[in-house]
């Protein structure tokens, strides 16, 4: 039996992010220009290796849940709901990539991709995957500012 067919949608498709570091841009105050974000959200550079981990870990970004990425083939079962990320850095600038990861809806209207650096504007927000309600004030962003920078650093390596 192909074991993957017995696996349901992982309960934790995307994880909590944790603490907002002092230098981080506040989620509601990110400056988007045509969907792109010029400056680092954490004020620091990203780490591509750390980004790789965020992208393949179910409890973190789990980007491969929806996107196929050749360079991440060590992680099993990439989804195909979103476009492949192969060559992403040849199609988008760093600022565009940052904007898409932080809030893709600012670039692609109506995209089903979750916004990973946002804390408000939800219908019936829940406390993670408990099914219970959460006050918007208690929500964390899906990824931290630094995790987003790490993902962007990895995406920048995906050139065609």
């Amino acid at each position: 039996m192909k074991p993957f067919l017995l696996v349901m949608v992982p309960v934790s498709m995307f994880a909590f992010a944790t603490v907002v570091a002092a230098a981080d841009v506040i989620p509601g105050e990110v400056m988007y220009q045509d969907g792109a974000v010029a400056a680092s959200l954490s004020g620091a550079a990203g780490d591509a290796d750390a980004g790789k981990k965020v992208m393949t870990t179910r409890s973190l970004g789990n980007c491969v849940a929806c996107h196929q990425v050749d360079a991440l083939s060590s992680a099993a079962f990439h989804g195909n709901v979103g476009p492949t990320l192969n060559g992403a850095a040849s199609r988008w600038t760093e600022a565009q990539l940052r904007g898409i990861v932080a809030d893709s809806k600012k670039t692609f209207e109506g995209s089903m991709m979750p916004s990973f650096y946002k804390k408000s504007g939800y219908i019936r927000p829940g406390n993670a995957y408990t099914g219970k309600a959460s006050a918007e004030a208690d929500l964390s962003t899906l990824l931290t500012a630094q995790q987003i920078e790490d993902v962007v650093a990895f995406l920048k390596t995906l050139k065609e």
Binding site: M13, N62, C66, P114, I123, L142
Partner: peptide, 21 residues
């Protein structure tokens, strides 16, 4: 929810596609 997904996102627009496995 915080993932901002509707029933239609998965079951109308993406049936026969995969989310991870």
């Amino acid at each position: 929810g915080q993932l901002e997904l509707s029933c239609a996102n998965c079951h109308e627009d993406n049936y026969d596609n995969y989310i991870r496995a």
